[in-house]
């Protein structure tokens, strides 16, 4: 499965994002931030890369601050 990961500045933002995306029926999971990304916070949100446009749109709408969105394997 092709995944993406959203990075955040705070874990509170990650938890907020998880809730918003899960409520929109997207398949997401909080994971320890993969080492290859220099991240501000210990947890990142994994999602299915096919949903990336929708992820960006939903987080934008809710004004959740995002530190980066990357494609992972």
């Amino acid at each position: 499965m092709n995944h993406g990961v959203v990075l955040f500045h705070t874990s509170s933002a990650a938890l907020r994002a998880e809730k918003i995306l899960a409520q929109a029926q997207l398949v997401v999971k909080l994971i320890p931030t993969p080492r290859e990304f220099s991240s501000d916070c210990g947890i990142a949100l994994r999602f299915e890369w096919n949903d990336s446009a929708r992820v960006k749109e939903l987080l934008d709408e809710a004004k959740v601050q995002v530190a980066g969105i990357h494609q992972i394997g």
Partner: peptide, 12 residues
């Protein structure tokens, strides 16, 4: 908000 394991995330 400290670690990435399930108990830390659940507390978060």
């Amino acid at each position: 908000g400290r670690s990435g394991h399930r108990l830390s995330i659940e507390a978060g």
